[in-house]
Design a protein around this nucleic acid. Structure first.
Lengths: 225, 225
DNA sequence: ATTATTTTGTGATATGAATCACATTACATA
DNA sequence: TATGTAATGTGATTCATATCACAAAATAAT
């Protein structure tokens, strides 16, 4: 299936920098797919020859740790996936899986490289993106190790609200085990802390439905404990 | 002070991709400095208008965490420093400090951007670098949270040997507190585990001088505990 | 050299959070 | 609708490691 990328309503800032010519090249060299929740987008250990554009939906990036699979990051559309692993290595170094229904476009690596070469502004934006990611990982590194569970949970909830869903009310796209994994804690602790936050009136929990009732408090918990 | 970058013996792979023209531009637009151990290279919170090329020496990247300063990474020459923070933000989002005597070149951001624009191969290499960093941070994320202290210490020691010093014998460029901070543990644990490794004949510790005696064992500890 | 200051070693204790062990509930599927 | 399976709630227990509290070295400063 092939859409005309020039009319794609789901452009990232980078994509909007592309010349018509490059967009046409993209149109002729991508494979569009509709995915269901749980479908694999990139699989660690397989050959990586494509960059993936996440048009719609939500995905998790996970990687095989020494003992268990570890979720390192949530990504929502629109966004490019797999740049680090596709450029950095012949074999995928991590997995990406849809956690909601999603639409993705597979773009051949060479085509993507060519587009980078021909579009300075696009390249700048992609580099910006890398910079943002690296900064985020630095912050994450400092926060995760210095904060207690409640702080990290608060962070994660704020992240979902502000960065992923852009709303203070959302339904967690992960099970408690997965959420625990993302936050570097145990399933049981997630359950307990969620209940605590609810009891304290900071959030309202209803199954996986979460509503932030008192953002000030949540921020305080994030900063302190 | 100004050297001719064309003759600089400390090029990264990326830098070696540059056209003579760009190298000349670089020569005319950089400030070279000799630094002493402990000198600040980039300071979190100040304005960031320069990319820094670490010509020689060793540096630590550290960032203000919620409670204390956190070392997130060690970098050795030759390498560019401050790309994420210089491109990603007007204000430096982290600090970089020399942990050994070092030589650095300050390059104006606009000059650097211009060089990126004009050198596709250079840009590719820089992007590769970003990719490698992001992959590393994913791995680090999974490892740090799943491993016990001994495993993480083993990792860090292997990292120093293989990536930083390229030798199984080296002197730690950090105090035990700093090392602890880098490995997400306490100073006391570092002292204890170092002593354990020594007692087990895995490494020989003599002050800050470390020699890996049994790399196999160290790798095992890294993988298991 | 002498004194001050930072670094390191090591035991005892405290603690946050994982693990264990079930009960309970929601969800999927035959 | 029944029935198996996965997800969640909650107490009791264990455990790794931080913290505390000093002593001893090692460095730096005067």
């Amino acid at each position: 299936m092939q859409n005309d990328c020039r009319n794609c309503p789901f452009k990232t800032k980078a994509t909007s920098m592309l010349s018509d010519c490059s967009l046409e090249q993209l149109s002729n060299n991508h494979l569009e797919l509709k995915l269901k929740k749980g479908d694999s987008i990139i699989k660690q250990g397989t050959y990586s020859t494509n960059v993936v554009f996440l048009r719609t939906g939500l995905a998790k990036i996970h990687i095989a740790g020494p003992y268990t699979e570890q979720i390192v990051k949530m990504v929502n559309a629109p966004s490019y996936l797999g740049l680090p692993t596709t450029f950095g290595s012949k074999i995928n170094q991590y997995s990406v899986t849809a956690v909601s229904d999603a639409e993705v476009c597979f773009i051949d690596l060479e085509v993507f490289q060519n587009i980078l070469d021909e579009n300075k502004e696009f390249t700048r934006e992609i580099i910006q993106e890398f910079c943002k990611n690296e900064l985020e990982s630095f912050h994450r590194c400092a926060n995760r190790t210095q904060k207690l569970i409640r702080g990290n949970m608060a962070d994660a909830i704020l992240d979902f609200a502000d960065k992923i869903f852009k709303s203070d009310s959302f339904t967690l796209p992960l099970s408690q085990s997965e959420f625990a994994n993302l936050v570097d804690t145990s399933r049981e602790s997630v359950s307990r802390v969620l209940a605590e936050f609810d009891k304290d009136g900071i959030i309202k929990v209803n199954g996986r439905q979460i509503e932030i009732l008192n953002k000030k408090s949540l921020l305080l918990v994030s900063q302190n404990g």
